[in-house]
Nucleic acid binder design. Structure first.
Lengths: 130, 130
DNA sequence: GCTTGCCTTGACGCCAACGACAAGGTTTAG
DNA sequence: CTAAACCTTGTCGTTGGCGTCAAGGCAAGC
């Protein structure tokens, strides 16, 4: 499988696949003419990467999962290092949820205040630049 | 008040103040020697900007609040444009909270699965590069 | 032989809000 | 006179995950 086919099957771009390779996440073979050649296993790897990135992981966070898959496991999250990352990310998300909830509360308070004190003093007519 | 003093009193840097000015958020006067001169009102403006950025606003979102303060209002959020931005941001935050909660749920599921299927297959000794 | 459609490496662009540094002017204290 | 401590403009770097050319090689059908 060449890079274009893998990209299509993984729902991404060739640029992305080369980027992952540059960062050590994917290791294709090379055919005689220098073309990258991927086997079926790499498709799973790429899909794992994509799924994790979608969830908010960084490329570095993804590495243990890839290694886990490469080690022959059926899923990338069953290895200790992956679990560590999962725990850490969960903690980060929880943290962020707390802060975001606080922000939400502040926005609501501010909105309430703003509406209570409505004033029309400021918004001059919007002007376009000359 | 010169830029250094304003920076200190606002808890930020001179670079930041010049950046805000470059983006039209702050308008200092100039003294004879070309130095930027700020009055007390600008301190409030800068603090408003900082507070909003901390909450996750972008510079563009902040503009209405600054204009509102400049129009003589005691707080930057009482003007219609500010209220619009507040509403939009609140909606964005709510949206993000929903997605983040979904992510959290997925992480928990994945963790559960990972722990149930614990395998030690993958983590070879970490090696340093030669 | 020529076009088409793959592939290759390389390098700049993007977005946000600045940090950091360069090279120089000004004012004040000593 | 000079050093210190301000100020000025200008430019490049940062962080991530790519998009988007650019310039060229290789394979295959006509």
């Amino acid at each position: 499988m060449l890079i274009g086919e893998l990209a299509e099957r993984a729902g991404t771009s060739t640029r992305t696949l080369r980027y992952y390779e540059a960062h050590g996440l994917v290791r294709p073979q090379r055919s005689a003419n220098g073309y990258r050649v991927y086997d079926e296993a790499e498709l799973r790897v790429v899909r794992e990467i994509r799924a994790l990135l979608d969830v908010g992981f960084g490329l570095d966070d993804v590495r243990p999962f890839v290694a886990c898959l490469r080690a022959g496991n059926s899923s990338g999250d069953v290895c200790p290092d992956s679990v560590l990352v999962l725990r850490r990310k969960l903690a980060e998300v929880d943290d962020y949820l707390v802060r975001l909830t606080a922000v939400r509360q502040q926005l609501r308070t501010q909105l309430t205040h703003a509406i209570a004190h409505r004033e029309e003093t400021c918004p001059r007519k919007r002007q376009s630049a000359p």
